[in-house]
């Protein structure tokens, strides 16, 4: 069951995207917990792409492809902008106590994405950057 979505590069669009994903996942038979976690992962990835990757430039769009099967779900999001790999690694590994101490608002989204998904990779093709994620389903 495949679906492709394209959204304007604005955080204002996210509530509508979540509503769409909620309806999409309702037809998959996923548990409520799995459904909520996958919506969160996509929401976090899109927020990162909008805010950090594309500076909320509303002239741009972000697309996502979701491929659901009984055994796994594959999610691909692009253009996520050019992320710094070193910075990304630092964010994911940063201790939550340090995030609190440094009064940081960010840095949690990637932690959630890496905690929930089984595979998270990034690649660049034709000058655009993509996030490719897989979750194996029980």
């Amino acid at each position: 069951m495949k679906v492709n979505l394209t959204t304007v590069c604005s955080t204002r669009a996210q509530e509508e995207i979540r509503a769409f994903l909620n309806r999409y996942f309702n037809d998959t038979g996923l548990s409520e917990s799995d459904k909520n976690q996958l919506i969160l992962v996509i929401d976090e990835s899109i927020a990162n792409a909008i805010i950090h990757g594309n500076n909320s430039d509303e002239s741009k769009t972000i697309s996502m492809d979701i491929d659901f099967s009984e055994k796994r779900i594959v999610i691909e999001i692009g253009d996520i902008g050019l992320f710094d790999d070193v910075l990304r690694k630092e964010k994911v590994e940063k201790d939550i106590k340090d995030i609190i101490k440094e009064k940081q608002k960010g840095g949690l989204g990637l932690k959630l994405v890496y905690s929930i998904m089984d595979i998270v990779t990034f690649y660049t093709k034709d000058g655009k950057s993509y996030c490719y994620m897989v979750k194996m389903l029980k």
Binding site: E44, A47, K101, K103, K105, G106, G109
Partner: peptide
């Protein structure tokens, strides 16, 4: 009904203060 990392981050950013 829903909270993302941005929502959690708001609470954490003020927690120390």
């Amino acid at each position: 009904r829903y909270i993302s990392s941005a929502g959690v981050g708001v609470f954490l950013s003020h927690l120390d203060d």
